[in-house]
Simulated assay, not measured.
Amino acid sequence: MVKAVFFDMDNTLIETQQIYIDAENRFADFMLGCGVHDKPQDIIERLRARQIEIFDRFGYGKELLPQAYEDVLKEYVPDADAHETKRARNLAYDVYATEAKIKPGAPEALAKAAASGFDLYLITVGDPDVQNARVAALPFRHAFREVFVVEDKNVAVYAAALAKVGLKGEDAVMVGDSLKSDIIPARKNGMEAIHVAALNWHGREMAGQTLPDGASAAQNITDAVDDIVARFGKPPANDAKAPAPAHKHGRGFGPR
């Protein structure tokens, strides 16, 4: 019996990919100002490719993006000076400081899931400082019984999260926008899984991946929760169930 729902954060509950896209466009404009004559989209595609190339060195850490920006600057402008290099890196760092918008329908969807009797958890990947700051800014952060900030999302990490809260795979549903990081490892742990369509880091999170057997797809977070409630929920009481008090962030498992 499904007792809990795990939610991804970036691009599932908040709009982070648009922040990255806006930064890419600013970087392309900056490169044109440095005398580069390539098309802006070609510069952006090279920037995205460079992030994939160096991912194994940096993972989802906050130095991945600044290093990619610096590397691409120096590919196009080998004699870039210290000021230009700092400017390129700061364009990347600005991504982490920019507040992300809440996805339409997210607060209502979480409230509906809680009112239908599910325990809610958040599992998000990335630099701990960056992700914890984004979690702290969530207006609905207290809806989650526990928040897991991890450096990667894989089968072992999901297994550890389930064990930490005393659940088996069949007890939980995973909702997220990434096939690679959310849906596939969740299914390998026996969890139900719903993929939510969204802009994301396609080259890392979607390319070459297919929706696994047993998983389903939704157009948005509202549809995903409606599906969960229809299939696994209890009829809500007259008074909406108050979310359980949030516990401390889960930081004691998974790769570090």
Rank of each mutant, 00 (worst) to 15 (best):
A244V: 13
I102D: 07
N238D: 15
K3Y: 02
Y93D: 13
H247Q: 15
A80E: 01
E205I: 07
I228L: 04
D177C: 10
R187K: 14
N189D: 03
D119C: 12
V225Q: 06
E146N: 12
A172K: 01
A160F: 01
A115E: 11
L199E: 14
P212Y: 05
G59D: 05
D129Q: 13
G252P: 04
K180L: 10
V36Y: 01
A197C: 09
D10A: 04
N25S: 12
A4S: 13
I19C: 06
N11R: 05
E146D: 12
G61M: 06
N220R: 05
K168L: 10
K248N: 14
E63D: 13
T16M: 08
N25F: 03
N25Y: 06
A49W: 08
Y96R: 07
R134Y: 05
L138S: 03
N189G: 05
A133Q: 12
R57C: 10
N90L: 11
T16D: 00
Q131V: 04
D129T: 12
D79G: 03
N154P: 07
D79I: 00
Y76L: 09
H37L: 11
P107I: 07
L65H: 07
G208M: 07
D223M: 12
I228C: 04
A159L: 02
Y158F: 15
A193M: 04
A100I: 13
D81H: 03
T124G: 12
A137G: 08
Y20P: 02
R26L: 11
D127C: 13
M174N: 00
Y20A: 08
F27I: 00
V196C: 09
H247E: 15
Y69S: 00
D8H: 02
A224D: 07
A224T: 03
A237S: 14
P243V: 07
E192H: 14
Y93S: 12
K3E: 12
K234Q: 15
A159S: 08
D119S: 15
R89H: 01
A197G: 03
A161T: 01
I183A: 02
A161S: 10
Y121K: 04
N25H: 14
V165T: 11
K101N: 12
V130T: 14
I52G: 03
S181G: 11
A217S: 15
Y60T: 03
L199T: 11
A240F: 10
D10F: 02
D94R: 13
D239E: 15
G117E: 08
N11Q: 09
F144Y: 08
G35V: 03
D71E: 14
D56W: 09
A163G: 13
M1F: 12
A115D: 14
K3A: 10
L138K: 02
G254C: 05
H202V: 12
A106H: 05
V147H: 03
N189K: 04
I194G: 00
A92T: 04
D22E: 14
I184R: 04
A186L: 02
V125C: 15
L47I: 08
K112T: 10
A115R: 05
D177K: 00
V135E: 04
Y96L: 09
E84C: 09
N238Q: 15
K74F: 00
E45C: 06
A198C: 05
A215I: 11
A160M: 01
V157H: 01
A244M: 13
M174F: 04
N132A: 11
G59C: 02
T98F: 11
E108F: 07
